[in-house]
Amino acid sequence: MTEEHLLKGWEEFEPGATLFSFEGKPDQEVHHENNSVQHSVADWRVDKPVHNKEFCIDCQFCWVYCPDTSIIPDVDDKGKGIFGHIDYKHCKGCGICVDVCPTNPKSLLMFADHLPVEEALRQWPEKEEKK
């Protein structure tokens, strides 16, 4: 459902269907109400991706491929880019990150959205033997 406060009257819109990203300067990082950061798509999800850092090689494929910028990277002590966390407010559950993850077993897998992460990690599969 569209949030009520966004349903303005015609005279309240900027001309040209223009939308802004920030309130004030960008470096203050106050997001405008129209910025997609302000809007959760978590309820679109049926399954959610779960990350298992035991197998992750920090290749960042998932970060590159996620269409909703919901893989949030981090840096380690040496300044190297690593997997950080999943932004569950904006992850829509498409599974692309799982598809591109190159490890065996995969370091990202889809589980039912309601399943707790600890339980998902307990169910993690073994390494698959090459046939």
Partner: peptide, 26 residues
């Protein structure tokens, strides 16, 4: 760069009519 902006955003059912009528009004 101080004020990033999107032009001609997608406006489905909840907004399209309002934007068009703003155009009409202009």
């Amino acid at each position: 760069p101080e004020k990033p902006v999107t032009y001609g955003a997608q406006t489905e059912g909840e907004w399209h009519y309002e934007h068009k009528m703003r155009h009409e009004h202009a």
